[in-house]
Amino acid sequence: MSQTPMTIRGAEKLREELDYLKNQLRPRIIEAIAEAREHGDLKENAEYHAAREQQGFCEGRIQDIEGKLSQAQIIDVTKLPNNGRVIFGATVALLKCDTEEEIRYRIVGDDEADIKEGLISVNSPIARGLIGKEADDVVVIRTPAGEVEYEILEVEYL
């Protein structure tokens, strides 16, 4: 199996979710199932079936997170020497050339991406176009809306 890149923050968030699912949600679901069983006939017991369904979702998510963490290649960009190149985990300040708008993105793993937070997937068109470039480079990114030109203002390893 191939490893999937992930930042330290991304791995921490997954571990926190895993801890919540295993130590808080799972016991509550087990308790709800036990309580619903006490109501008698399981065939027509909506509470029981709802709790069992929730248990299935919870266990599925636990397996999903454990699988992702086991395949993760955790990269701490702060421990790498900043040679000015855009790499996985770097924070990049960009200038959108046509509108003069400044944008900041951090390049992260697929599971960490959240455009509202400025976190873009390493597999996104923008990140693929930026990887390997340096400050003051101008890059043209193909997007669904057409080609967009960006100037790289700054590359930070935060």
Rank of each mutant, 00 (worst) to 15 (best):
L130P: 02
F57V: 13
V92H: 05
P81V: 05
R142P: 12
L80E: 14
I126G: 04
I141K: 12
I75A: 04
R106S: 09
E117V: 00
V77K: 03
E101I: 03
G118L: 07
R52Q: 15
V139F: 10
R85L: 08
A93R: 07
V108S: 02
V108P: 04
E59H: 08
Q55A: 14
K133R: 14
A113I: 07
E100H: 11
Q71D: 11
R52C: 15
I120W: 03
E100I: 00
S121R: 03
L119Q: 04
P144Q: 09
F57K: 15
G56H: 13
G146T: 06
A72T: 05
D98A: 10
P125R: 07
F57G: 15
S124K: 02
T99D: 07
V148S: 11
P144N: 10
I152N: 06
S124M: 05
L153I: 14
Y150H: 13
A127G: 10
R52F: 14
R106T: 13
A113H: 05
I74F: 05
A72G: 06
R52S: 15
I74L: 07
Q71R: 13
E102Q: 13
V148F: 06
A93F: 06
R104S: 14
I131R: 01
F57C: 09
A72S: 09
P125W: 01
R85T: 07
V139M: 05
G89Y: 02
D64T: 10
I62K: 08
A93Y: 09
I87G: 07
C97P: 03
T78Y: 09
I131V: 08
G132V: 04
G132C: 08
T91K: 12
A113P: 11
I107W: 00
G67T: 05
G109A: 02
V92C: 04
G60F: 09
R85W: 04
L119T: 05
E101T: 13
A135P: 06
D110L: 02
R61P: 12
E151M: 00
A90V: 08
E117S: 13
R85D: 06
D111Y: 11
L119I: 03
R128E: 10
D110Y: 08
K79V: 00
P81H: 09
L94Y: 00
V108R: 05
E149H: 13
T78F: 02
D114N: 14
G132F: 08
E100F: 04
V148I: 14
R61I: 07
E151C: 01
E134Y: 11
E117D: 12
E66L: 11
E112C: 07
L94D: 00
R52D: 14
I120D: 01
E134N: 03
E101Q: 14
I62G: 09
A127P: 11
L95C: 02
Q54E: 15
G129Y: 10
A145W: 00
Q73N: 15
N123C: 01
G84D: 08
A113N: 02
V140T: 14
P81L: 04
L69F: 10
D114M: 08
F88A: 07
A93K: 12
E100N: 13
V122P: 01
I120S: 03
C97Q: 07
Q54L: 12
A113L: 06
G129V: 01
E66Y: 03
T143E: 11
K133W: 02
